[in-house]
Design a protein around this nucleic acid. Sequence first.
DNA 1: ACATTATTAGAGTTATTACTCTAGAGTGCA
DNA 2: TGCACTCTAGAGTAATAACTCTAATAATGT
Lengths: 219, 219
Amino acid sequence: MKTRDRILAAALELFNQQGERKVTTNHLAAHLNMSPGNLYYHFKNKQEIIYELFLTYEKTVDGNLDLPEGRMLTLEDKLNYLQKIFQGLWEYRFMHRDMEHLLLGEERLHARYRDFFRRSQQKTEAIYEGLRDANIIDIGQREIEGLALNTWIVVTSWYSFLQCNLLSYGEEDITLDMLKGGIYQIFQLERPYLTEQYRAQVQAMQEAFIPRPSWLSSQ
Amino acid sequence: MKTRDRILAAALELFNQQGERKVTTNHLAAHLNMSPGNLYYHFKNKQEIIYELFLTYEKTVDGNLDLPEGRMLTLEDKLNYLQKIFQGLWEYRFMHRDMEHLLLGEERLHARYRDFFRRSQQKTEAIYEGLRDANIIDIGQREIEGLALNTWIVVTSWYSFLQCNLLSYGEEDITLDMLKGGIYQIFQLERPYLTEQYRAQVQAMQEAFIPRPSWLSSQ
DNA sequence: ACATTATTAGAGTTATTACTCTAGAGTGCA
DNA sequence: TGCACTCTAGAGTAATAACTCTAATAATGT
């Protein structure tokens, strides 16, 4: 593995573990048994590392929101979208956790992020349109926009929400299962629009993601 | 005005304007024509200032989610709740913008925030129950929980969302009107549950908050 | 008036952290 | 072998920011 790629992999790992802010370039270099000078030989600054990580994240998300060609959407597709989105969220969980700070003074990344958001919105709307065409949900065109935006907000904020409301301070870490509890909330957003025909089936799907209250409540 | 209160007021103002992280204690002191030593005479550290601001925020929010006594909820109440919540969000907008960072290493504040969240959830659920009892929405008990949580997430993340997706980088600032665009999204969450009887009326209310697309899109 | 306490100034300290600079080691090639 | 280029080490720098320390000044009570 090339040094450059090792740096990116280690950065992603440490950023996810500890948050981008707590991982200094010196920590990162030390973790890699490498001198800071070497790290800066490969990347002109820390933001450059973050930018490259964003590009790979962007690519995976883009790939996870495509419509199937030549056929209708199915319930399995729906679940699949959610699984993939939350898997991506997990693998790059440092990112949405502190996006505002990452974008601060980073015009290039900021512009790219805005495009990413708009593209994601369009793709999400297309998926909801697909679900409507497949008679899985019954929803007006106008409402699709609002729903897609709320979906975006809940997805991108879910990790921070968990972090802020975790019970035991510091010790406990967020797990993939806890993160996927967010899928329940997305189902909740869509639930009122389900057609009679699919309501029971989707509800059964949603049940699989009921968050364990122990994560958040004091009991 | 006591020096201590002047510090709190200036801190709130600067934090809101520039974000908590960009406002150093030295900046804050300079803004008040005061020495850092003086500032630290009144507050043992920066976090103490933030903690006190949180307490006042907490108090206003708590006061804004109470049910009226001895009567049913009305549509006007509903709108009023939203207006007050978003007004509070505006006056303390620095807070949810970077909550995770504010809570980091602050066990006392973190614990208090979790309580605040739980209390707010309960009060939000009570309001939705009140709207159900007033026959304004038709919703199951179980769904109320999910709805209240999504409401919390959208409300507390809305400012960050705007910040991350603002069109022109750096220059433009978020206005109260833009923030109140979030009310539209909350209406959107509740909309599917509206009873036939109130649907048209609430929809008319929602229209008042349609976000101007110029805030977010490139055109 | 005087002692005591509360408040303020402001220079200075300490820790952190992103990043630089120079020298040297490895590698491929003529 | 020698030359050019790539890669790496690691000490060092500069900026930042939270916070401390001492001494001076105001306020207050007796």
